[in-house]
Design a protein around this nucleic acid. Structure first.
Lengths: 364, 364
DNA sequence: CTGTTAGCGCCTTCAA
DNA sequence: TTGAAGGCGCTAACAG
């Protein structure tokens, strides 16, 4: 069928071992034979059989990148950075960096992890927040543990660290985002401007990203003594709970949730969204209700995606260095950068104050 | 090291052949042994060795999806659709659909294709326009031909068909976008509104998408007898050429190009962008120049990405059914849908008239 | 520096 | 219905 190593060897009149050596370039070969082999490779248009080589060498050049939503630039930016960092490895170490779209589904995440394990992937980079169900979290942690045991490098990027395993060793390298801190500073900014009736529009409740950002938001509220802003866990309908609406991490959801928020609290002076995409939906909803931003209602997002600076008005948000984080994850995954102490590094989130936030119209 | 088929076989007290048969499910096995094997698999936490199985079976379950820019929703939407369509295949046919980011670089495109060929990928879906250099086009066509020869299914999605090969058989299945037709209808819309001084902001000159959309635009201009709107190939600086600015397919480029356009022709009444992202940049530039949309200048885009309907004002654009096209490509790649007659289907582009276009203020 | 020789783990005839 | 055995194409000792 296809051209094999043996064909090349015959054509170049050397042994297949020699061909293998010039191709992998990890062993001395005389310049003359080397040239002869390369010419044979060219003439026969030979392409290595990846599976065979992976089997024999017990390693593969596949690197998997898991994302929750490939159509979302938040993930696209990170994945692109990981991939280009890995593609940098020219020549011998050519890796196939490959992104897998889980759609945010825990099952598919596990499925992809298994598929990658089956391929004996060299590394796996898991991006974005995790689903929180105890069972699923445990299943993922177990799967990642098995991957590392099998020699696959695992890097978490934008996801909280795994619980430590029994055997001391940090299970996987983690680049965690400071979602709590960023969210807290953002809400503090609004508080400082004088806002007190602040709505919060966020994604699915059972995601780490949702929870951490919400915790930061409420921590700021509580610290400022905003009435009723109790602990999230408190039962009943505290003011904070009444002003929090969950949905999906997309624009449509942000739109609807903002309308709901307005229904619950017409006197709202600010809306904090759990990400920029939701914030855009919130802006659209407010505008459709005849409210001006920020004159009537301030709006803030999170992530600082490229479009946020271009929105009208430009969106106040929290900047996450997605590209840098992805690139670093890529280097970590390919062993070109030492793991941070303890295996975990926290990526700082930076407040970006722009035009969509201003002091409230009426002091409450 | 890892658990192997043989381990499972020993544990279940059957031959490894039997285990293999149970796992691939393509051969009769008694219910009793089947259960025993499955239990052993579970107890040992066995995961198939992909490379070994690919080597022995001479097929792999990898499906590659090539995109030009993973951070661009245009590609994200298509890739996501392809991937979810392929992930549908549960159970035995579990495929690993995987996206590769070429960054629009011809070299990286070729590199990824080779990497996928090396993995003996089951299928490859190539999305988006192609780079046009004759040498590169030939290299890609040759590579795709070799892939199909090796049994890899190749589907082009949103890319013009390959030139027919000598041997009759349509080389690869193609889902082409009607970029020319869509662009033409869009410009006709502007013409109908009364615009005559229409600027065009587009991407890199050496891309099929750029060229086809530009051709459609100019065809409309020429048909309407707009002065100077000659053939694109015409030498010198026709009016059409003077009002066309090339850049990248991103917002920043759209911003800069629009400023340049305004410099060249302050009396502009409309800006047509080669895609929605560029259009957003154009809007920002116009706004920054104190021009209102559409009162002073109309703006139109292409693709109808999700954000376009939300822009202020909502963007007039040309809708491409990206999700549907991606899903269909996924089905084609997995042989779950017959190829269109002749191997090529053209995907219709639909004009979406929204708020960003209106009659020009002064009749020219 | 180069050739020889075992496997890597699985699939797949061929027998039983 | 099940087992035995050869080989897929390549790599990695081990000799020479």
């Amino acid at each position: 069928m296809a051209v094999t190593l043996a064909d090349v060897a015959a054509h170049a009149q050397v042994s297949s071992a020699t061909v293998s050596r010039v191709l992998s370039g990890n062993y001395p070969v005389s310049e003359a034979t080397r040239a002869r082999v390369l010419r044979a490779v060219g003439e026969l248009d030979y392409v290595v059989n990846g599976p065979a080589s992976a089997l024999a060498a017990a390693t593969s050049d596949l690197v998997g990148i898991l994302v929750n939503d490939i159509a979302d630039p938040f993930f696209g930016i990170m994945a692109g950075a990981v991939q280009s960092e890995i593609a940098e490895l020219h020549g011998t170490g050519a890796k196939l960096a490959v992104v897998c779209n889980t759609g945010g589904s825990p099952e598919r995440e596990l499925t992809y992890l298994t598929l990658l394990q089956r391929q004996r992937a060299a590394a796996v980079v898991v991006t974005g927040g995790a689903a929180e169900g105890a069972d699923h979290a445990a299943a993922v942690a177990a799967k990642l543990g098995r991957l590392t045991d099998a020699g696959t490098r695992v890097v978490l990027c934008g996801r909280p660290p795994l619980p430590p395993r029994g055997d001391g060793e940090p299970a996987v390298t983690t680049l965690a985002f400071d979602n709590r801190g960023g969210a807290r500073r953002l809400t503090e900014h609004l508080l400082t401007l004088g806002h007190r009736r602040i709505g919060y529009v966020t994604g699915p409740p059972d995601r780490t990203t949702t929870r951490h950002r919400l915790e930061g938001h409420r921590a700021a509220l509580a610290a400022a003594g905003v009435p009723g802003a109790g602990a999230p866990a408190a039962a009943g309908t505290s003011a904070a709970e009444r002003l929090t609406v969950h949905g999906r991490f997309d624009r449509a959801s942000g739109y609807d949730a903002t309308l709901e928020l307005l229904r619950r609290e017409p006197e709202l002076t600010a809306v904090v969204a759990a990400n920029d995409t939701i914030a855009l939906g919130a802006c659209a909803a407010l505008r459709d209700q005849g409210l001006r931003i920020p004159a009537d209602v301030s709006v803030a997002g999170f992530d600082d995606l490229p479009f946020s600076a271009d929105a009208v008005p430009a969106l106040t948000t929290v900047r996450l260095p997605l590209h840098e984080a992805g690139a670093r994850a890529g280097r970590l995954a390919t062993n070109r950068e030492p793991a941070p102490p303890g295996g975990v590094a926290t990526i700082r989130a930076e407040l970006m104050v722009r035009a969509s936030t201003a002091p409230p119209r009426d002091r409450g």
